[in-house]
């Protein structure tokens, strides 16, 4: 899941960072992920992983890094 997210993010949302040197804990928001990027990321994740990500949980804390994103999506899938 994390690799799919990473591939999508660095192909579609953030271009000017080198994905090879971008760590799972590195801050996606500092790297330029903006509100429109988060929206597309959520649309992608809901479709790709068959989950519904609750509106009220869309927070910088849940989308701030690849690890945080993966944890959040997995949690939402179990609910």
């Amino acid at each position: 899941m994390k690799e799919k997210l990473k591939t999508f993010i660095f192909a579609e949302l953030i271009y000017h960072e080198d994905p090879a040197s971008f760590g799972d804990e590195d801050n996606l928001l500092d790297a330029g992920l903006d509100s429109m990027g988060i929206m597309r990321l959520i649309m992608f994740a809901e479709k790709e992983f068959g989950v519904t990500l609750p509106d009220t949980e869309i927070e910088p804390d849940n989308v701030g890094s690849l690890n945080k994103l993966e944890n959040w999506i997995k949690r939402s899938g179990q609910a």
Binding site: D34, S35, D55, T56, I58, P60, V63
Partner: peptide
């Protein structure tokens, strides 16, 4: 500022 990332808030 942070609210642009958190639409429900």
């Amino acid at each position: 500022a942070g609210l642009s990332m958190a639409p429900a808030r």
